[in-house]
Design a protein around this nucleic acid. Structure first.
Lengths: 192, 192
DNA sequence: ACACTATACGGAACAGCGTTCCGTTTACAA
DNA sequence: TTGTAAACGGAACGCTGTTCCGTATAGTGT
């Protein structure tokens, strides 16, 4: 399977790249919720041009973050689960409301979500398997659930320095690990 | 301090109640992101009427959920932390995307968030104190952080039955409890 | 009973969003 | 050079939350 040849005309290829650059810049500065028109203006093109290259706003977001997702997927070969999860969290928190955007607007950002899942779920699954096989983690945790939970815990961590997402992620992982007495699981701090 | 007398005219009082009823119904059926106009239509009033009673969309949401927040606050006197947290989660998940709405749109829903915090934070703080004093929970967890984390974990739990928010909450609480060997905390599943 | 006015009402109007449409321009091949 | 498929810009559409204002009315003083 050869690489996508992209648009046929040179101006189309140029504009596509301009849009990606502009979007990356605008997203970094104003968050992923930035208006489409602002990206178009930054790229020096009309609004219609965006939609010829990226059928929907979410497609543009996916395209912009795609290579970062790639490197996250690649990191799965080099680190263990706990570290990878924290990298995953870092990525979500840093990208200015990306976690928020993925949580809200689930209809619109389904493509983005799908893309993330398709690329990262296998990585997470493998790392999870390693831990389970080593007996360090209980076996009833599905990769998707874990990723969703981590993603959710990152929400709101970017604006206010008060909320420490990494701390909560640490706790979640601790709770899912097999270090605790299994008989207590499912009833921690509940009424006796 | 006497109770708020409310609007002066009878039709105003009637419409205010109609709006609350209509909003509760619409929110339950279509989620808290339902358009203002739909609520107005359901209540049989004009769009402008909403804004005379509730300066902004979020104020209406706050008003609708206020008494449910009350009962949640009251529940704090009867149950222990673990149970209360699960009730808190139930409330968020049931209310059709309430957790989502609070996470996204932080600017718009700040009032709602503030209201939740003001009413529920003391309750959570007290229950947390009980656990810490009993030595069942580590002492560096702030009520607000815990509530935010729980709220976040609930996101997306309403649509797909796949994701089990309660399971993840259980794990988080386990991770924050003092049952685990403290020397391991902060480095679970991390590279060695 | 009536008239007066503060209060409240309805819905048109505004601004901003994502997206679509279409007349115009342009890159490339013949 | 010329023909045309491809791509362009930006006005237009439908949706949102919110504001505005001319109209209607509930409650009061006479």
């Amino acid at each position: 399977m050869p690489t996508d040849p992209g648009p046929r005309r040179s101006d189309a290829r140029r504009n596509r790249q301009s849009l990606l650059d502009a979007a990356a810049s605008v997203f970094a500065q104003a968050g992923v919720e930035a208006p489409v028109r602002e990206i178009a203006r930054e790229a020096g093109v009309g609004a219609g041009t965006i939609y010829r290259h990226f059928p929907t706003r979410a497609d543009l977001v996916v395209a912009v973050f795609e290579h970062q997702v790639d490197s996250l997927a690649a990191a799965g070969d080099e680190v263990v689960l706990g570290d990878w999860i924290q990298q995953f969290a870092d990525f979500l928190v840093t990208k200015h409301g990306l976690a928020d955007a993925m949580a809200s607007d689930r209809a619109g950002f389904e493509r983005l979500h799908t893309d993330f899942v398709v690329r990262l779920e296998p990585v997470c699954a493998r790392l999870l398997d390693v831990e389970v096989s080593a007996g360090r983690m209980c076996s009833d945790v599905r990769p998707l659930d874990l990723m969703r939970a981590i993603g959710n815990l990152c929400i709101g961590a970017e604006g206010n320095g008060d909320y420490d997402a990494h701390r909560m992620i640490e706790a979640l992982l601790t709770g899912l690990s097999t270090g605790t007495d299994d008989t207590r699981r499912g009833a921690v701090l509940r009424s006796r």
